[in-house]
């Protein structure tokens, strides 16, 4: 939803892109400013922590070792709905699975879907946006009309329809969520390219006969990279929320995988006898999204020359 706003503020982005300097110094300066932003550092810290959990769960899973207190997917009907206690910190669910282990395990899925979906929308969006912006004319018109079509359907409805058609699964959730946010990136990239295209060094490169793809890769993209980093960071938070929403509606991952939104959707039926099943996954989602928002905001401030002057 927030993406609707940002995708429409091409004007601001063009402005921002005009301040773009040399790529290396730009990223470096961003980092310097970021370090002074307490909120962003907290966000970054939480993200590192989540990534660490996700990686260790994933790697230990690959090695066949169990580092979680319990097997997150093992159901045991004799243990259903145990309230949080010393043995089960977050309690157990209807099928007697340890919620603490499931929430930690869920980190893996949420982060993976978030990052993978953004990679899809980012790469496709950047590609389409660059072509549209650089080529202009008819190509531009066609690509951007298709983007407009996708933007005209609320992204959550589009994602639901994709999932209903494709079926449940992590891979499918990645595709559905990735597809629906392509237009956003395409529009940002196109707008930025329009603004740097006329710069002297791009014109110079054209004169010396560089190929189009080389000009885009070597001269244009590096100049908008920080902008893309900001969008991608905020994009991950949206993707995590979308994943949770799909899971909540019963359209997320295949069982028995732990996914936070799916856990919330199931917990909804037990708000009286087991409210804790509703609380912890909600906190996990909010914390993850919050972390990416903090970092994304910090990055944006770091990028925004006006706030740098302050």
């Amino acid at each position: 939803m927030g993406k609707k706003y940002s995708s429409n503020s091409d004007g601001n982005l063009i402005q921002a892109a005009e301040y773009v300097e040399k790529p290396e110094s730009q990223l470096k300066e961003m980092w310097e400013t970021l370090r002074q932003n307490k909120a962003a550092v907290v966000g970054l810290f939480i993200i590192c922590f989540l990534v660490l959990i996700a990686l260790s769960v994933w790697v230990s899973g690959l090695l066949g070792k169990q580092i979680l207190p319990y097997d997150p997917n093992h159901s045991d009907m004799t243990k259903s709905f145990i309230w949080p206690n010393a043995e089960h910190w977050f309690g157990t669910d209807q099928l007697g699975r340890d919620l603490f282990s499931r929430i930690l395990d869920g980190t893996k899925i949420s982060l993976f879907v978030g990052v993978a979906a953004v990679s899809i929308s980012l790469s496709t969006g950047v590609l389409l946006g660059s072509i549209a912006g650089y080529r202009g004319g008819r190509t531009d018109a066609i690509i951007m009309r298709v983007m407009d079509m996708m933007l005209a359907i609320p992204s959550i409805l589009l994602a639901i329809a994709f999932m209903a058609a494709l079926g449940k699964g992590i891979d499918k959730a990645v595709i559905a969520i990735g597809l629906v946010s392509i237009p956003e990136y395409a529009r940002i990239v196109r707008a930025s390219i329009l603004s740097v295209k006329e710069n002297d060094y791009v014109q110079a490169a054209k004169v010396i006969g560089s190929s189009d793809s080389r000009i885009i890769m070597k001269h244009i993209l590096p100049n908008i990279i920080s902008l893309i980093v900001v969008r991608a960071t905020l994009g991950i938070s949206t993707a995590v929320l979308d994943t949770a929403a799909l899971g909540f509606l019963g359209l997320g991952v295949q069982p028995p995988f732990a996914e936070w939104g799916d856990m919330l959707g199931r917990a909804r039926g037990f708000i009286f006898n087991a409210p804790y099943t509703l609380i912890f996954p909600g906190i996990a989602i909010t914390m993850t999204v919050l972390a990416f928002n903090l970092l994304g905001d910090g990055l944006r401030d770091a990028l925004d020359p006006k706030s740098r002057i302050k």
Binding site: H74, M77, L95, K168, L251, Q254, P255, P256
Partner: peptide, 21 residues
């Protein structure tokens, strides 16, 4: 299905579940 998966894993059967609307 998930509950039954738990019982079958105890007797050495690995269960994969595909669920659909």
């Amino acid at each position: 299905a998930e509950a039954i998966q738990g019982y079958l894993s105890k007797v050495g059967v690995t269960v994969t579940i595909d669920s659909y609307d």
